[in-house]
Design a protein around this nucleic acid. Structure first.
Lengths: 191, 191
DNA sequence: ATTTAAAGTTACACCTGTGTCACTTTGGGT
DNA sequence: ACCCAAAGTGACACAGGTGTAACTTTAAAT
């Protein structure tokens, strides 16, 4: 190495995350990022071709972290335990799922690297889906899940629900508890 | 009137809706809108000062339509009937709620007209909330709702759930049915 | 037929983000 | 001490969106 770096890739990702949450996909620019990293715009181009590539690499990075946590779901044997664990890791870093949705805005490109990233991300999603599929299968075997509701809706529902904005800043523990209850039993009175 | 208009306000709103859904808030531009209306960009400035004003007026317009439907919820007397009706009108035009979320991106402005629009929209939201509050009250009185879940979460949950993307294009009727079931009873097996 | 005012067009100046490239700085290897 | 390659900077040309204002078109009113 010839010269000390002023910023690490991790710092880029961390700042990117915050800026994406604060300014949204289109509001996020290399100028903004450069300012926050206290570095010139040109420097970032040394590592990322453009905004799309940076964001998709960030998402891949985050997705890998999430997947490594998700895979440990199999250390639990019952559906209820797995469900608890799943909710915990999702809510642990629930902004990620908001950002994943922001990332949908990334326009398709014919750039080779972009295509490669897209492919990798699709594979990661597939991994995630496969793992979750097993979780659902277990739930169905244990007859804990409503057989009239298809797998895809169950998963969509879980990820959608954890995105409910906590406007009134209900304490984290209470919030998680409510989430679990509402996902399992809806809004109706179980009595 | 001195000359026939080439486009109506309704056409603007209809096109705006579609473009917002297709391109998102930042991807939506006056040039794009003008092209789709087959009109020059300048013409639109005759009616709307800028993109923010146009969108907030569109949202107000849509919100009023929704509210006029929502208020008819009181023609139903039981919670179950009201719930059915609510789900029907929400899912009837569920893109609206996605757009309402897009509209959150509109930056605050100190422009007078903008402030006025913001205020009006806040009032409409308040109206909506008040009506829905009564719906929830009825549900609690009938003991149909889980008393441990706060009002705000119930409402957030309903609006969040109807946004689940129907990726697999489940037929409308089936989809609505699943939505109702999952909102009331969650994913668990009620047996 | 002429007038008039609203509707629409066009061109201009401006701003902001993009991507690139020649340049400078830095610090480890020889 | 010197070299050199990686790290970082600054300036440039470019692209696209913005808002405005002078201009043209159109049709209703007189």
């Amino acid at each position: 190495m010839a010269r000390e770096r002023k910023f690490t890739t991790e710092e880029v990702f961390e700042t990117t995350k915050q800026l994406l949450l604060d300014y949204g996909y289109e509001g996020f620019t290399f100028s903004l990022l450069a300012n926050h990293l206290k570095v010139s715009r040109g420097a970032i181009y040394k590592y990322f071709e453009n905004k799309e590539e940076l964001i998709s690499e960030y998402i891949i990075y985050q997705m890998k972290v999430f997947l490594s946590q998700l895979e440990r779901i199999n250390t639990y044997t019952t559906f209820d335990e797995q469900f608890e664990y799943l909710m915990d890791i999702i809510l642990n870093d629930y902004e990620l799922h908001r950002i994943r949705r922001i990332a949908i805005d990334i326009p398709a490109s014919d750039n080779a690297k972009e295509k490669e990233n897209k492919k990798q991300l699709d594979n990661l999603h597939l991994d995630m889906y496969t793992t979750l599929q097993q979780f659902i299968k277990l739930g169905r075997e244990e007859k804990r899940l409503n057989p009239r509701i298809p797998d895809s809706l169950i998963l969509g529902f879980i990820f959608q629900t954890v995105d409910i904005p906590n406007h009134y800043n209900v304490p984290r523990e209470d919030w998680i508890k409510s989430m679990k209850e509402i996902i399992m039993n809806g809004i109706s009175n179980s009595n």
